[in-house]
Computed example of a mutant assay.
Amino acid sequence: MKALVSQPHLLSRVATLALGKTIGGSAAEFTDVPEPAISPDEILVKVRAVAINPTDHMHIDAISPSGSIIGCDYAGEVFKVGSNAARSWSVGDRVAGAVHGGLFPDRGAFAEYLKVDSDLAWKVPADVDDAAAATFGVSAVTAMLGLNARLGLPYPGEKHDIQRQQPAPVIFIYGGSTAAGLFAIQVAKLAGCTVITTASPHSTDLVTSYGADAVFDYHDPDVAAAIVKQYPDISIAVDCFSKGRSFSISDTVLKNSKGKLITLLQPPKPTYPGVEHEFILAYTLFGHPFQWLPPIGPRWPAIPDDRKALARFYATLPQLVSDKKLRAPPVFLEEGGWNGILTGLDKLRAGKVSGGKIVVKL
């Protein structure tokens, strides 16, 4: 089968890690690799569409070992079914989700076929097209991991009594117009929260349409003070940008309550005493240990509760999507088929994507 496979160059990788930018061109190329064999608990998916995330080019540029298939977010149809998986899936079923792409030679979304744990995928409703379905991958499950599994908010789609939560909890989401931010806003609203977020002025209508109750311009040098003046007791926050000023702004919002901040990239030490940072990675949702850049790179243990959280979320997602309670972010279709993946990756590298997610149909 055809797949986008990592071919790292040592010098460009060192430069990327040292300078924070790509040098020497893409360290991945399309090549033919064996079709993955599936276990009794897996399904094989014929990939129809993929969504592109910053983590994909980060893996190509600095993380992936040689021979790894790139890509996390996918939508397609079931092509083969493992014997145990037949209780839940049939050949021809429409399916979508996310996988741990960029680290393994036999599992990655930017390929003709993809093997998936049968309980870590969701069935796509008939009225949802492949492009939209593909966006409910890394960004959506990251929002769930941060808000539900880590901050303890009620899971979307499950019965809970939000009437007793008076006043409604207030949450701060930095970077509301990112794909993760748009999902985080929706997940927080389903949990009964009042959502305060940041965005550029041109994205205010977008984040409001996804449920944000108040939007502040992150360009404002006094944005943190403005938020604290109106909402002085915010105790939980998610930083969906996790770069530059986002950490200090979020910490300032939380300083009065000595609250907790979830970050999507490794954070610095908290700006104020008592504020807590927790760095999360969607990859822990797949239930296996992993390491980047062995033997010296960071390791993550298997977290069984995270895996249970992903299965729980994807079990309820078809109904949430059918009921329009969780919406896909705006989709930017990249033409060109397989070559569109490379074009989309370059756009993400250059910071040219805002307010939606690039999707490529294959």
Rank of each mutant, 00 (worst) to 15 (best):
R245P: 05
A62D: 01
V128M: 14
I173L: 14
K255W: 01
D239W: 13
W89P: 02
I358A: 12
G82D: 10
A96I: 12
H219D: 07
E276M: 09
P318R: 07
G297K: 14
R299I: 06
L11V: 15
T31W: 01
G274T: 14
E335L: 01
A328I: 04
H9G: 11
G297V: 12
P330A: 08
A109P: 03
P34F: 02
I52L: 15
I171Y: 09
S118G: 14
V170D: 00
I358P: 01
V238S: 06
T208N: 12
V170I: 13
G176Q: 10
D239H: 12
T204I: 11
G137W: 04
V33E: 01
A226S: 15
V95C: 08
A226C: 10
I52A: 05
Y314L: 02
L10D: 10
A191I: 09
A37F: 00
F247P: 00
D305F: 04
G211Q: 09
A85N: 04
G71A: 11
A134D: 04
K123Q: 13
V253T: 07
K229W: 01
P270F: 09
S68C: 15
T252V: 06
E77S: 07
G92K: 05
N339S: 15
E35K: 14
F104N: 12
D161S: 13
D93E: 07
A126L: 11
G211P: 03
H57G: 00
A140W: 12
S257D: 04
D32N: 07
S200A: 15
Q230F: 00
A96K: 08
P125R: 07
P304I: 12
P156D: 12
A98I: 11
Y174D: 04
V47T: 09
A37H: 09
S248W: 00
S177D: 03
P289K: 13
A98E: 11
H9E: 13
P232Q: 11
G181Q: 08
G20K: 10
L44R: 06
K2T: 01
Q165H: 12
P40A: 10
K255T: 04
G181V: 11
D73I: 05
E42P: 08
L264V: 11
V228S: 05
D217R: 14
F136S: 03
G67E: 05
F30V: 04
T343F: 00
H160N: 13
I38Q: 06
Y218A: 01
